[in-house]
Design a protein around this nucleic acid. Structure first.
Length: 491
RNA sequence: GGCCCCAUAGUCAAGAGGCCUAAGACGCCGCCCUCUCACGGCGGAAACAGGGGUUCGAAUCCCCUUGGGGCUACCA
């Protein structure tokens, strides 16, 4: 069987958004499943829309997600270069060949001329097509104009045909009638190739066997197929993935909140969770299978004909839920590593402290992880393990600190804690349980105010886990602080 | 406007003519567990866009309408 080679071909116009990431991911799944190659190609032929550093961002996001490729701009490969801007000779050679065989021609029409023509066609209600005016220019006429310094485009000369049929692996046979096409541009007047041309030349030169890309390219495929035939290339297999839409079903854009991989990263999503989420967007592991699925599992059962044809609206809530699942299951050491930057970012620890207190941080992460869903939440939930209490939760204050005799209760508690030698979860709990029994009170009566005193909040991990982590000294100090505070509240 | 793709709950999705009184997951609601929150457990509300065919039988096949998306650029 022919070797499977697929590619992901982003254009560097911004961050890697989730649609692009999913396209990359499905290419990756397909390549790995078929023991094929994934190549990364940068489509940077539009100098106007290029964004500085976009390539670096995209590569970083891909790597961070754990999507690795076999050939590409950073590590090279046998079919380079991997930037279209460095492959210009491929395109001009291919175009020259087409001109030579009279399948393409120079066109000197200016943009203004074309615009007037289009305007007229719009008014007349006819199809908007290039007239083919420059088709019949003689060699001499072309040479003359070239010598005048005019910058032509090169257009493909469409032969008569009835229709073009695209056989899409996901959508089946798709037919396009010939009247939809005109002599489209393959080389722009700045000598750079137009997308449809560059794409064909490169996919052929790079021996791409399967073109797996977003649905927005489905309508371009007949043009590309025409070009394959004109150039005598064999046509690869195509698979067009449905689009990913914003919650209002419009195209994804910045106004829809987080849409790029880097934004999800900044929110505190784990790469594995994003991968898992993206896997589920347009593909399903099948009936009765868990939705928590690793790339390895997906690679085993992935299949393009099971990919959904329907555009998907992404749902950040499910991503966040998945992320929470990953946070609780994650390797603790790795999770700590991911968490530290968020603690620093939130001003909870300094980078120096982070290095010195690694094992303490890890212990905090361990007790907090189960009830947070993002690393940002994790940082926030960890604050009082590092910082003193400067304020108490408003509602909690009213509810617990105004309880009768609460100060006395807390000082009792403090007393008991003070007497503990080995200040751990079991012993602190035992001390408190004994106290409750002696005073004949219910747990909540002392546990809630204590929690507020120790954490400043009404919500936390189990109280005795908090105590053990905080340590005896800080527990006693915070109880003292709360008692003072309560006494001041009264007066 | 023309052409193309798509259409199962709020969202992702299973479903390939009878197994459908339509899975599962997120979210939502209720209950249980419980020191709070989360986790977990149990239960609930919630969908085949509409209309025509074909068929003994349609979520599944065909047609139309509607809706959404894409392409129609010297963007990719």
């Amino acid at each position: 069987m022919k070797e499977v080679r697929v590619r992901f071909a982003p254009s560097p116009t911004g961050f890697l958004h989730i649609g692009g990431a999913r396209t990359a991911l499905f290419n990756y799944f397909f390549a790995r499943q078929n023991k094929g190659q994934l190549v990364l190609r940068i489509e940077d032929t539009d100098s106007v829309r290029q964004k500085e550093d976009s390539i670096g961002q995209i590569l970083d996001s891909l790597k961070w997600l754990g999507i690795d490729w076999d050939e590409g701009p950073d590590q090279g490969g046998d079919f380079g270069a991997y930037y279209q801007s460095q492959r210009l000779s491929f395109y001009s050679n291919a175009a020259a060949e087409l001109i030579q065989s009279r399948k393409a021609y120079y066109c000197f029409c200016t943009e203004e001329e074309l615009e007037t023509e289009r305007k007229r066609q719009r008014k007349e209600g006819t199809l908007i097509r290039y007239s083919g005016k420059c088709r019949e220019l003689s060699k001499n006429e072309v040479r003359e104009r070239l010598e005048q310094g005019l910058k032509p485009v090169i257009r493909i000369k469409l032969a008569d045909f009835d229709q073009i049929i695209v056989n899409d692996l996901i959508r089946g046979l798709v037919k396009f009638k010939s009247d939809q096409f005109d002599d489209f541009i393959i080389i722009k007047s700045n000598s750079l190739p137009a997308y449809n041309f560059a794409c064909v030349v490169d996919d052929h030169a790079m021996r791409i066997s399967h073109v797996i890309r977003a649905e927005e390219h489905l309508s371009n495929t007949p043009k590309q197929q025409y070009l394959y035939e004109a150039l005598g290339y064999t046509i690869p297999k195509f698979a067009h993935l449905s689009m990913i839409l914003a919650p209002d079903r419009s195209k994804l854009s910045k106004r829809h909140g987080a849409t790029s991989v880097s934004e999800f990263k900044d929110m505190g999503c784990l790469p594995e969770a994003i991968i898992n989420y993206l896997t589920l967007l347009g593909w399903s592991p099948g009936e009765g299978k868990s939705e928590l699925i690793s790339p390895e599992q997906t690679i085993r059962s992935f299949s393009l004909d099971k990919v959904s044809k329907t555009a998907a609206v992404y749902d950040i809530q499910k991503l966040v839920w998945l992320n929470g699942q990953y946070i609780t299951e994650y390797n603790l050491e790795k999770l700590t590593l991911y968490a530290v930057p968020f603690l620093i970012q939130a001003g909870i620890v300094s980078s120096i402290e982070a290095e010195q207190n690694h094992s303490y941080i890890s212990a905090v992460v361990k007790t907090v992880r189960e009830r947070v869903r993002t690393l940002q939440e994790l940082a926030e939930a960890s604050r009082y393990f590092f910082k003193d209490i400067i304020m108490y939760d408003e509602k909690g204050k009213e509810k617990y600190f105004r309880q009768e005799n609460v100060a006395i209760l807390l000082s009792e508690g403090k007393e008991r804690l003070a007497g503990i030698e080995d200040f751990n979860v079991e012993n602190t709990e035992k001390a408190y349980r004994n106290l409750m029994e002696e005073l004949d009170i219910k747990g909540g009566q002392i546990i809630h105010p204590t929690r507020l005193a120790l954490t400043g909040r009404t919500v936390s991990p189990g109280l005795f886990d908090v105590m053990a982590l905080l340590g005896k000294k800080r527990c006693l100090e915070r109880l003292e602080q709360a008692i003072d505070y309560i006494n001041k509240m009264k007066s």
